[in-house]
């Protein structure tokens, strides 16, 4: 069992942060990698990204948005409760290196949780790092302080204009790319439509763009192929080949469709959960 030692509720209760004891995983985790967890015996295995690790305490921190039954259930857990399984670190770490120009790290929604350790990695490697983080509204924005600490320049956007730039992260991204022609790398992590637009935005500027994909997974060790995506016309397994890919090569239509494969079942499961916990 993997004990929960701390909990923070963010963004109007729709985003949660849990710190979980999992020393074995924390010890090995690198930016870009993820974990799979299962809450209890009847639970499903879901992939989630680690926002940070505390090697001394042997803990890792996950941040997630409540989108269905498992995440809703996860949000009801309190310190002292435990998860039945935490597996990882999985996937390939981000290939972080020093570029001779700025790296732009773009995050939307809870994607910022994934983006944060990667951003920190680029900063620690000596890069000039520009951060752009966005959310629907101010209260949904996460990790602003943390991102500020690992970027040279942090821009903020909200869809409703309640904080920062009124608009999308891609508006600011486009503006920066127009102003500076020395941008060497863009990392875009967030909801699939956002990542798609980040890639569309960078394409005309010919700036390499990495996205981190979060498809449906089961074992997450390369055994089942549930997470397969088409990248550059080839089938790849996100769990072992990814989760990061060249965004300009990703078939986002297919990814979107595959993410909706169990939409009916997910709805049913969530409804049952809400009824039981009403």
């Amino acid at each position: 069992m993997y004990k929960i030692v701390d909990k923070k509720v963010m963004a109007e209760g729709t985003v949660c942060q849990l710190e979980v004891e999992a020393a074995r995983v924390a010890r090995k985790a690198k930016p870009g990698q993820f974990i799979v967890l299962r809450i209890d015996e009847k639970g499903e295995r879901i992939p989630l990204t680690m926002a940070k690790q505390d090697l001394e305490k042997g803990t890792l921190t996950i941040i997630f948005q409540v989108v269905g039954k498992t995440t809703a259930h996860l949000a009801t857990l309190e310190p002292g409760d435990a998860l039945i399984d935490v597996i990882g670190p999985l996937g390939m770490p981000t290939h972080i290196k020093k570029y001779d120009g700025p790296v732009i790290c773009v995050g939307g929604g809870t994607g910022v949780a994934v983006l944060y350790p990667i951003t920190r990695g680029y900063k620690e490697a000596g890069n000039e790092v520009i951060g752009i983080i966005g959310a629907r509204t101010k209260d949904l924005l996460i990790l602003e302080e943390e991102m500020k600490g690992v970027t040279d320049d942090l821009r903020i956007t909200t869809d409703d204009g309640s904080y920062g730039h009124h608009g999308f992260v891609t508006d600011v991204l486009k503006q920066i790319l127009e102003e500076r022609d020395d941008v060497k790398m863009v990392v875009g992590i967030g909801p699939v439509p956002m990542m798609r637009f980040v890639c569309k935005t960078t394409e005309p500027f010919n700036v390499p763009t990495t996205v981190s994909l979060n498809p449906i997974m089961v074992d997450a060790t390369g055994m089942c192929g549930a997470c397969r995506v088409t990248v550059g016309g080839k089938t790849r397994f996100v769990c072992v080949d990814g989760p990061e890919f060249d965004g300009h090569q990703v078939d986002f239509d297919e990814l979107t469709q595959r993410l909706r494969m169990y939409v009916e079942e997910e709805k049913k499961s969530y409804e049952l959960f809400k009824q039981k916990n009403a």
């Binding site: 009847k42 499903e44 089961v218 074992d219 079942e265 499961s269």
Partner: peptide, 21 residues
């Protein structure tokens, strides 16, 4: 592998009692 893992290991044949569809 996926089909059988869902059904056998994750007990998807007992969905929604078990979470995996």
């Amino acid at each position: 592998n996926e089909y059988l893992t869902r059904s056998n290991l994750m007990k998807a044949y007992k969905f929604p009692e078990y979470d995996t569809p």
